[in-house]
């Protein structure tokens, strides 16, 4: 298949154990959600990597634009007080 007659692309997320967050592992091509799920199962869970799968159409993802990096991410650079490590532990605090 050439690039322009491929099935739509789906992003695959695998949960390795109940309760853990789903992790992005890659993508598959498939005609619809059920087949995307099957393809994801065949490609990404052959070695017991997961117990649950999410597939999402790639074109449904709203992504940030790299051109926006200055406005989006740089302002966080000098806000070191947002990290927990900025604060000294109060004396006597045992359960933080």
């Amino acid at each position: 298949m050439s690039a322009d007659n491929q099935f739509p692309q789906w992003e695959v997320f695998i949960q390795s154990k109940t309760g853990l967050p789903y992790k992005h592992v890659g993508n598959v091509h498939a005609a619809d959600g059920e087949l995307a799920l099957q393809n994801a199962r065949d490609l990404y869970t052959r070695r017991q990597e997961g117990t649950s799968i999410w597939v999402l159409p790639t074109d449904q993802i709203v992504a940030s634009n790299p051109d926006d990096s200055d406005a989006f991410f740089d302002p966080a650079e000098d806000k070191i007080y947002r990290a927990a490590t900025y604060y000294t532990m109060p004396k006597g605090a045992k359960h933080i």
Binding site: M1, Q6, F7, V28, H29, A30, N39, D42, R46
Partner: peptide, 12 residues
């Protein structure tokens, strides 16, 4: 296989 994903599915 007809495409990569299906190739792996059939060999699985």
């Amino acid at each position: 296989g007809p495409y990569l994903e299906e190739d792996i599915a059939l060999t699985n």
